[in-house]
Amino acid sequence: MSYVIIAGISFPIVEKPEAWYHFPLIPGLGENAKIIFFHVPTAWITVLAFLMSTIFSIKYLRKKDLDDDGKSQTALELGMVFCILATVTGAVWAKFTWGEYWSWDPRQTSIFALLLIYGALFALRSAVENEEKRATLSAVYSIIAFVTVPFFVFIMPRIMKGLHPGSADDTNAGPVVNFKMNSNMYLVFVLSVVAFTILYFWMWRVGSRSLNIKEKLLKNYR
């Protein structure tokens, strides 16, 4: 907000006001480069949410408090939502940059595997009736599943050849890797990541509290 106010006041008086909204565009990407402000934060939130789910799973296993299970479950749901969003926005971007929605690029394959791994957790949760048993099983599964996350998100797409920026054959010649955001673009990018993180924490708080109240109500009235 303060940035907007400062920009609004100084816009007419600075020497070159156009510099405020000048973004360097990646060759071959054009305006599409701006998708980075939305596609990357969703992927970041996916990792953050799965990490939080693991932390609360460990907490549940130590203290056996069902509230921690609710928090872990909500983080899982949000992680899944943002994982799907990262996949879909990535696919749309791919259509206009790589020519196909889906081309089994290492990055796409790894996020697909991630979706399957965490999708199985929801199947597991819905299959167990007993609350404590369900919470323990899903906590253990969530911890084990998170072991694969750094591998699928950070390692595998980087050591294999592919189309996504940061792949193994994307040597220093690639326009995307060599590309440097200028300060304007970097500011918008950081603001976007921070805003998405705040949005995620807000959604997670509302989600986990309502889930825990619902579970308690179900326990009391039945």
Partner: peptide, 17 residues
């Protein structure tokens, strides 16, 4: 295309809400 991407992201947030 950027607008479509933004709308997809908001649709996801909307569905969760």
């Amino acid at each position: 295309i950027v607008m479509i991407i933004v709308l997809i992201v908001w649709a996801g947030v909307f569905l969760y809400n």
